Amino acid sequence: MPGLEHTAIIAATPERVWAVVVDVERWPERIPTVDSVERLDDGPLAVGSRTRLQQPRLPEAVWTVTEMVDGSSYTWESRSPGVTVTASHVVAPHPDGSRLTLALTVSGPMSGAGWLMTRSLTRRYVETEAAAIKQAAESATT
């Protein structure tokens, strides 16, 4: 299954990093690879929560949370014809604060061709997202 993983060490508590990661409504102001976010349900992010996400140069996608360990990780997936994209966000304690791991896999009959076309863009986006989350978590403002 094609995919990638990126880890960043963040000089902030896991609670602070987690707060930034799950505050998806603020991603467009914090993360330059996110144009718009629309939560499709009320309340905090939880299993079953759906979020419409628009990113530059990618089709709009609806992401559904499939797994959640409150305070430390969540996984969500987006489905389109022939492709399922699964993305995980994991926050763990680290001697210097926190370790953020972002991972993404693609599966389905069309995943190989799709991955070939989007792999380098996706890698840049994941690296940019980790850096933006790091910056937001390390800043004094929430």
Rank of each mutant, 00 (worst) to 15 (best):
residue 1 M to W: 09
residue 1 M to T: 07
residue 1 M to K: 10
residue 2 P to Q: 07
residue 3 G to E: 10
residue 5 E to R: 15
residue 6 H to K: 05
residue 7 T to Y: 10
residue 9 I to V: 15
residue 12 A to F: 14
residue 13 T to W: 13
residue 17 V to E: 11
residue 18 W to Q: 10
residue 18 W to F: 08
residue 18 W to I: 11
residue 19 A to S: 13
residue 20 V to E: 12
residue 20 V to Q: 11
residue 21 V to I: 13
residue 22 V to W: 06
residue 22 V to G: 01
residue 22 V to D: 04
residue 23 D to A: 15
residue 24 V to N: 03
residue 24 V to H: 09
residue 25 E to L: 09
residue 29 E to G: 08
residue 30 R to Q: 13
residue 31 I to G: 00
residue 33 T to L: 05
residue 34 V to R: 12
residue 34 V to I: 15
residue 35 D to R: 15
residue 36 S to C: 02
residue 37 V to S: 00
residue 40 L to T: 00
residue 44 P to C: 00
residue 45 L to M: 07
residue 46 A to Q: 11
residue 48 G to K: 05
residue 48 G to T: 06
residue 48 G to Q: 03
residue 49 S to H: 08
residue 50 R to D: 00
residue 51 T to L: 00
residue 53 L to E: 09
residue 54 Q to E: 15
residue 54 Q to C: 10
residue 55 Q to F: 10
residue 57 R to P: 01
residue 58 L to P: 01
residue 61 A to N: 10
residue 62 V to K: 01
residue 62 V to C: 01
residue 63 W to V: 05
residue 64 T to N: 04
residue 65 V to G: 01
residue 67 E to M: 08
residue 69 V to W: 04
residue 69 V to A: 13
residue 70 D to C: 00
residue 70 D to M: 03
residue 71 G to F: 08
residue 72 S to I: 04
residue 74 Y to D: 03
residue 75 T to S: 11
residue 76 W to I: 03
residue 77 E to T: 09
residue 77 E to Q: 15
residue 78 S to L: 08
residue 78 S to P: 09
residue 79 R to V: 14
residue 80 S to V: 14
residue 84 T to G: 03
residue 85 V to F: 14
residue 85 V to C: 06
residue 86 T to W: 12
residue 86 T to K: 15
residue 87 A to G: 05
residue 88 S to Y: 10
residue 92 A to M: 13
residue 94 H to G: 01
residue 95 P to N: 09
residue 95 P to I: 11
residue 96 D to Y: 07
residue 99 R to P: 00
residue 101 T to M: 10
residue 102 L to I: 12
residue 104 L to A: 02
residue 106 V to K: 02
residue 107 S to Y: 01
residue 108 G to M: 08
residue 109 P to V: 14
residue 111 S to A: 15
residue 111 S to R: 09
residue 114 G to S: 09
residue 115 W to Y: 03
residue 116 L to Y: 02
residue 117 M to F: 09
residue 118 T to W: 04
residue 123 R to V: 07
residue 127 E to D: 07
residue 127 E to I: 11
residue 129 E to Q: 11
residue 131 A to V: 01
residue 131 A to R: 10
residue 132 A to L: 06
residue 132 A to S: 13
residue 134 K to T: 08
residue 135 Q to W: 05
residue 136 A to W: 11
residue 137 A to Q: 14
residue 137 A to I: 13
residue 138 E to A: 06
residue 138 E to G: 02
residue 139 S to R: 15
residue 139 S to G: 11
residue 142 T to H: 15
